[in-house]
């Protein structure tokens, strides 16, 4: 299998323990998409297309959408290259959620993408990327993720590597006041 997709019909809330202060926007996450794929580089184009569509549904600007797609692509490539050491056919799970939370009394929403793999344990301490002053191949993927996303978190849970990427929607610009006011 190259690719499996689960699109929920209903709403799945994941409480994160934070209190809502706006009264209508609880701190929660709606499941948008769950992909089960194998560590095959051919799957990357399919995941990019799915994530791009998800960012469009959530009304991210084009530039932000490209940044999110690039981050997920680089993260998946790292799983294939490093966690699975280039071996194909190993499982990777990509979960995409629409996040809601309150910040300074206002509702903010965003996208959360979680990648899980069963490969070699990732050591966050060794994930430094490289200095951009060096001109040499490699070491750019992590830099792309950190530059593009609001949150990048590595963890190990139940014997699996987990990478959580979050990007919040920029607040909408205030509408211009009508003339004469």
């Amino acid at each position: 299998m190259l690719f499996g997709v689960k699109v929920p019909g209903g709403r799945t809330n994941t409480k994160h323990g934070a209190n809502s202060s706006c009264g209508k926007c609880a701190f929660h996450a709606e499941l948008l998409l769950k992909l089960h794929l194998e560590s095959n580089p051919q799957a990357l184009a399919l995941v990019r297309a799915a994530i791009e569509r998800a960012t469009e549904v959530l009304h991210f600007h084009e530039e932000e959408s490209r940044a999110i797609v690039r981050s997920v692509d680089e993260a998946l490539a790292n799983v294939i290259r490093h966690a699975y050491r280039g071996k194909s056919g190993c499982p990777i799970e990509v979960t995409c959620r629409h996040l809601h939370r309150t910040q300074n009394g206002a509702c903010v929403s965003g996208i959360e993408i979680v990648l899980r793999d069963s490969g070699v344990r990732a050591d966050p301490a060794k994930m430094k990327g490289r200095s951009l002053k060096e001109i040499r191949p490699g070491g750019l993927g992590l830099h792309f993720m950190r530059e593009s996303m609001d949150e990048v978190e590595f963890s190990r849970k139940k014997g699996k590597n987990q990478l959580r990427l979050v990007k919040y929607l920029a607040p909408a610009a205030p509408a211009a006041a009508p003339e004469g006011e």
């Binding site: 990357l44 990019r48 490539a77 001109i135 191949p137 490699g138 993927g141």
Partner: peptide
């Protein structure tokens, strides 16, 4: 349409 860090790495190798 798209280039990732592995493509950039190949370009850097070509430049060198």
């Amino acid at each position: 349409r798209y280039i990732d860090s592995s493509g950039i790495a190949s370009l850097v190798e070509g430049l060198k």
